[in-house]
């Protein structure tokens, strides 16, 4: 099948649109998804194409948006709710954690929750402390809900389609900085990437870099720089924080015996902590060096650009971490 070079926002839009065409039960709701065309333009033109029944502008009511999505999903619809940015998902935390992730188990399988909550994530451009979260690990803490975060337009399409078709609740986070970045995306309306399947974004033999989302870009840039110095990095994009593709990580680690974990988020109780713990529990015999973590600094993000940048990870910090264990 043919491929198109399109930005991630268009890949997401294609996935969503195709799934709405494919399944009548799929609909979108959220703040500014209709008349405004979506804050991030992922639902551009949807109101005209699908009408108000299936493209529902909501009040600024995150708790109700997610809670109603859970109920609608329990009752047989397949809502794709948009939370403008992940920062506002904290207002819907209870609906996500205590309901979306629990009702199936709690009522012994009587219900399922085929719901997707899409939320833009990531910091940058001085958005400041309350508007700069990348809190995927917190949401991935709880069993019962999946969490995916794509790093390329093709992954975005295939992963979002998988999320919509799956019968489990999925929190799907989309890195704001990646929305405009282009990549080749298959036209195939059945291009679905399986949930929980990670991807080797660059093969290598000296160090495994485990990452997701925006971390993939920094890791690939770092791998390029390191390659010039004769250091070969394998970049593992887990794509899904839950379910996590541990076999893929382990396979890579057995080869390299070294690992750096790269994430956009905070260091405490983090993605990096989890990967490091898993490796030392299961791969201790293969370990030749301490696991290194690259993350944001353990501070809320400030407004002033000079100090905001100090707090954030980038390719150079990844390069430095790799060099420490090589």
């Amino acid at each position: 099948m043919a491929e198109k070079n399109i930005p991630m926002r268009e890949a997401l839009r294609a996935a969503l649109r195709e799934e709405m065409l494919r399944d009548e039960r799929v609909f979108v709701m959220g703040e500014e998804v209709g008349a405004w065309d979506g804050t991030h333009k992922v639902t551009r033109g949807f109101l005209d194409e699908f009408g108000e029944r299936r493209v529902r502008d909501t009040p600024i009511s995150e708790m109700a948006i997610v809670g109603a999505a859970v109920g609608a999903a329990m009752a047989g619809l397949r809502p794709v709710a948009e939370i403008m940015t992940i920062n506002f998902a904290f207002l819907a935390f209870d609906a996500l954690i205590n309901h979306a992730a629990k009702v199936r188990y709690m009522f012994d399988g009587q219900f399922k929750v085929p719901m997707v909550v899409r939320a833009a994530t990531g910091w940058g451009n001085q958005a400041t402390a309350t508007h700069s979260h990348t809190p995927e690990p917190i949401f991935a803490h709880f069993p019962g809900m999946y969490l995916g975060c794509p790093s390329t337009p093709a992954d975005a399409k295939g992963m979002l389609k998988a999320a919509i078709r799956d019968d489990n609740p999925v929190l799907f986070t989309e890195v704001i900085a990646l929305y405009p970045k282009p990549g080749l995306v298959p036209d195939d309306p059945d291009f679905v990437l399986p949930i929980g399947k990670g991807d080797i974004k660059r093969a290598g033999k000296d160090v495994t870099i485990v990452t997701y989302g925006r971390g993939v870009e920094w890791s690939l840039d770092a791998a390029e720089i390191l390659a010039r110095e004769g250091i070969s990095c394998e970049v593992v994009d887990v794509r899904w924080l839950r379910p996590l593709d541990l076999p893929l990580i382990f396979e890579s680690f057995k080869k390299t015996n070294r690992c750096v974990v790269v994430e956009e988020s905070l260091p405490f109780y983090s993605f990096g902590s989890e990967i490091a713990a898993q490796l030392q529990e299961h791969m201790f015999d293969y370990m030749d060096a301490p696991i290194k973590r690259v993350s944001a600094m353990d501070v809320p993000l400030p407004y002033a650009k000079e100090i905001e940048l100090m707090a954030l990870p980038d390719a150079h910090k990844v390069v430095a971490a790799v060099k420490e264990i090589i």
Binding site: Q126, T128, A129, H131, Y303, A304, I307
Partner: peptide, 14 residues
């Protein structure tokens, strides 16, 4: 975003 700002340059416009 200056140090002399009311919020020390950490808060910004909002």
């Amino acid at each position: 975003g200056k140090r002399t700002g009311v919020s020390g340059g950490k808060g910004g416009s909002m």
